[in-house]
Design a protein around this nucleic acid. Structure first.
Lengths: 154, 154
DNA sequence: CCTATATCAGATCGACTGACATCT
DNA sequence: CAGATGTCAGTCTATCTGATATAG
């Protein structure tokens, strides 16, 4: 039943639905590429935060990435046991860790970047380069407006 | 810490991440608007399918909407107890239901359509009409290419 | 004493799996 | 008997809440 498999036009007319569906698909596709290298989306998020902003406490990372501090624990455990990050107690405030990227962590990030590129080739195949940039900019504007966390650094 | 709340530029450079985040936001925003009227996204999906294609069996609806048949049961229970749909056994094949929209179901759909419009005004506020259409078309092309279910009827 | 940090235990929700009674 | 349909029970994951030990 190829015919019976088509989504209702009334649903496809709702941009929010398309966003939701495309978002799920994007997350899944990126997730599959990353998992081939023992990486998870939350891992990638933490690695980029450390790469872009330098060492930080777990609380800071969680606030930046909108990841609940309690959920971050397992993520950091993974990253540490893979030797991608290092956790040291902050001598100035021994409640905190100072989390920093290792050499292997930087390498993992490069791998993840290739995964992202592969994801885009797959996910955005029907769009040419100009259209991909167009989509990217539109999404960025939407997020920047709605989510104060989405602002790039100024 | 306004400064500490910004997402890593390296993450914001990944379109798949933007899609994932925007998708989550879209689902959440639409969900909030709908829940004000005792509606859920899955309810909306089923209602549009019945409106666009007419009465159908639960299995068909599930296949169309990529909702697991076992998960549909609770959704249909909700819709039925709200008197938005009607379940009759198919006399020609008594395994199936013939699910159809009620008058109240059509009304609920109109309400949901207003919720969707309100969602877009909120979600897509930074985009003008032309840009919203642009985004919509780009998303549709991406979905149509990747998900055979996303094809509109031809 | 109050607050912040990291952690753990548990609730909740959406999506998925397996089994089953009923019917064709 | 094999296969389809609706249903139920249970798993798995991500997300969120609440509590707690330790430190400031």
């Amino acid at each position: 039943m190829d015919d019976a498999a088509r989504l209702p036009p009334s649903l496809l007319a709702i941009t929010a639905f398309l966003l939701s569906k495309a978002g799920r698909l994007a997350r899944q596709t990126l997730g599959e590429h990353l998992s081939a290298h023992q990486l998870h989306l939350s891992h990638l998020a933490v690695l980029t935060a450390l790469a872009d902003f330098g060492p930080a406490a777990q609380r800071q990372l969680g606030a930046r990435l909108s990841i609940d501090p309690s959920d971050l624990v397992a993520v950091m455990d993974d990253l540490e046991s893979a030797d991608w990050i290092q956790r040291r107690r902050d001598p100035a405030d021994r409640r905190r860790y100072v989390v920093s990227l290792t050499k292997a962590g930087w390498t993992a990030l490069e791998v993840a970047a290739r995964d992202a590129a592969a994801t885009h080739d797959e996910l955005l195949a029907p769009l040419d380069l100009r259209e991909r940039e167009q989509l990217h900019r539109l999404l960025l504007r939407v997020l920047t407006h709605l989510d104060p966390h989405a602002r790039a650094e100024g």
